[in-house]
Design a binder for these strands. Structure first.
Lengths: 209, 209
DNA sequence: TATATCCGAAACTCACAAGTACCGCATATA
DNA sequence: TATATGCGGTACTTGTGAGTTTCGGATATA
């Protein structure tokens, strides 16, 4: 113990010799983890599957993540990046136009994938708060947030009464699509989403199309 | 091969000697399986846990079910028994009265338990159609069926327009409570259920309270 | 009472997956 | 160029859980 732990700061960079870690591979590995997670679930996923799909060695994965659990948390957290920011949400002048404008092939596909990951995780969520937090931030919250934003704008326009239960109503479409995919195993297509908008969401907001 | 397989019929009762199997224990074992399932999930549940909780030997379980998978399917199917039949649904004269009348401590507790089991199963549902079918019949369908029944009666009374999307609207409350419990991990209490009825369900049916 | 089966309990086999160690090669610093 | 590290790949160790077997004791038929 001569001069240990006295490095400059933030887990100081001890040496700088030898080959550097290729961090461009991190996203590929996390993507592979998400693929396996969506197909096999938390327990069904093995590190070997992830390594094989990422064409990486198992040791490489363990050099970067301490355990399977940490890898999964990182993988789930990295889904958040595919989120759309509010500035590029549709702005058609009517709430219905905005909601319908959000239905695009990519967003449907993306949503379905996220739900499959969520299904694979769900038995763990109750026992792993860290994972539950990551899943909520990456999968759940973004969808509700977009709906909240659009409804608030509709209230500002005077299109919707200001006393509606925004929280609950923003969760209608995430909840019902999740249920439809995970429990009912029925497809979520444009037709279904529009029937949700016209048959449930807008009426609940007092708009009768 | 002298006279095998020539028993009278329906997998004939071969002998009738020795101690008989005590089938009164079956429900206890299935209950234990559901308890563990709700707490640990499909993969987290072990046969030893179930046997221990049921105070039974592991061999006893394997004498009655060929595998863990079959035990779980049977356990899920046996949840269906706690269902209420239509004849004892509330009949208050208004849809809102009927829906509110369905909110009882027991039904909330029962629903929460079923959802926890569902959460434990969800990673398997996509890969095990037999399980998905059992889960749907035991957990999902009964709740939707009750709602459908009440809405149909409201239509017959003229309280609700006959052209509403009964299928979708009957799934609002099951979907959103499931989402709230499984994904949001928030409690489902009387207040929340009433806000769902008054803020979403009735408006979607064209009733403005 | 003799026999066959069930019971709970515990020991066992077997397969599989997390995590580790090592190989030969690639790539970086000094 | 010498050294130290990361790389993909493979073999290994270890723990755990499904399913099987065995045991002494209980309970049924004949």
């Amino acid at each position: 113990m001569t001069q240990l732990d006295l490095t400059d700061e933030t887990t100081g960079p001890p040496p700088k010799l030898g080959r550097k870690r290729d961090h461009t591979r991190d996203p590929e590995i996390l993507q592979a983890a998400l693929d396996v997670l969506a197909e096999e679930g938390y327990e069904g996923m093995t590190i070997d599957m992830v390594a094989a799909r990422a064409k990486a060695g198992k040791a490489t994965l363990y050099r970067r993540w301490a355990s399977k659990g940490e890898l999964i948390i990182d993988a789930v957290a990295c889904m958040k990046k595919s989120d759309l920011d509010f500035s590029q949400l549709p702005d058609t002048g009517t709430l219905r136009g905005d909601l319908v404008g959000m239905i695009r092939p990519h967003s449907i596909e993306d949503g379905e994938r996220k739900l499959k990951v969520m299904a694979g995780l769900s038995s763990m969520l109750a026992r792993t708060p860290e994972l539950a937090e990551a899943a909520n931030a990456a999968i759940v919250e973004p969808r509700a947030a977009a709906n909240r934003f659009l409804i608030h704008r509709a209230i500002d326009r005077g299109e919707v009464a200001p006393d509606v239960d925004i929280e609950t109503i923003s969760l209608i479409s995430p909840s019902m699509t999740a249920y439809r995919v995970l429990v009912l195993h029925k497809p979520v297509d444009r037709e279904y989403l529009i029937s949700l908008i016209d048959g449930v969401l807008l009426p609940a907001l007092g708009i009768t199309p």
